[in-house]
């Protein structure tokens, strides 16, 4: 259940952050793209949280888990809750997230838990397209103008430490997170190279998200996401 919450919360918080770009993306096509990616992440989040609620057996459905948990009860990694920043930061986040989710979902899709395998098999196909999209933008910005290169490099440098948490040991995980790192690097490193970006050095990384210890950014995100549901319990459109 805790593990499923981690997967579901990663997807849900990523969706909410991407949704913030709707109507303010740099161009109309990108507005549509980010909204569609957010929708894919939300779709996966709904299935994962719905399943987590059933396993818990306490009568909490996807909405109860999404709207009625506090920040300390969220299990997402810190990477997804960070603010969108500029467009380069958003693309760097999407690159790192999708490069991690792709091998993760691939491994889960052939796992022993059939229900989780079905969800992961579906989400994996969608995430492959997200990775393509983030890769194209990373190359375009990294190998673009001096200013876009500077921003893309700054974004990758700033976010790289947050990937350490993704591969930390987790006794509840059916797939060893550390084992996913080589596939993650194989997704990211060629893109950085093509983009003429330096791959940041490995080192210390902030963590705590899986244990419910978040940055304050998550609290603001949840406040906005949950306010309507909490103000009008049981309201329907």
């Amino acid at each position: 259940m805790e593990y499923l919450l981690g997967l579901g919360d990663d997807a849900l918080v990523a969706a909410q952050r991407l949704g913030e770009w709707v109507t303010v993306a740099p161009e109309l096509e990108e507005d549509v793209a980010l909204a569609n990616i957010a929708l894919d992440q939300l779709g996966a989040a709904r299935l994962l949280l719905g399943y987590a609620g059933e396993l818990e057996g306490a009568g909490r459905d996807e909405d109860a888990l999404a709207y009625l948990r506090s920040d300390r009860e969220y299990r997402n990694c810190l990477l997804v809750e960070l603010p969108n920043g500029d467009f380069a930061t958003t693309m760097a986040k999407l690159l790192l997230l999708s490069a991690y989710q792709l091998p993760l979902y691939a491994a889960l899709s052939v796992g022993a838990d059939e229900r989780l395998a079905a969800i992961a098999g579906k989400a994996r196909k969608e995430v492959a397209y997200h990775l393509d999209h983030a890769s194209l933008w990373t190359v375009r910005l990294g190998d673009g103008t001096e200013e876009s290169h500077r921003r893309m490099q700054a974004a990758v440098d700033e976010l790289w430490p947050y990937t350490v948490e993704l591969f930390a040991a987790d006794p509840a995980a059916p797939v060893d997170p550390a084992g996913l790192r080589s596939a993650f690097l194989a997704n990211v490193e060629p893109v950085l190279e093509t983009a003429t970006l330096d791959r940041p050095a490995d080192g210390w990384g902030p963590d705590g998200g899986r244990a419910g210890l978040h940055t304050e950014h998550l609290s603001y995100l949840l406040a906005e996401m949950q306010v309507l549901h909490r103000a009008h319990p049981g309201a329907r459109w």
């Binding site: 792709l102 691939a106 994996r124 196909k125 492959a128 393509d132 890769s135 194209l136 190359v139 997704n187 060629p190 893109v191 093509t194």
Partner: peptide, 8 residues
């Protein structure tokens, strides 16, 4: 195939 293409 769904995966493994860094540049699509």
């Amino acid at each position: 195939p769904a995966a493994g293409r860094p540049v699509p």
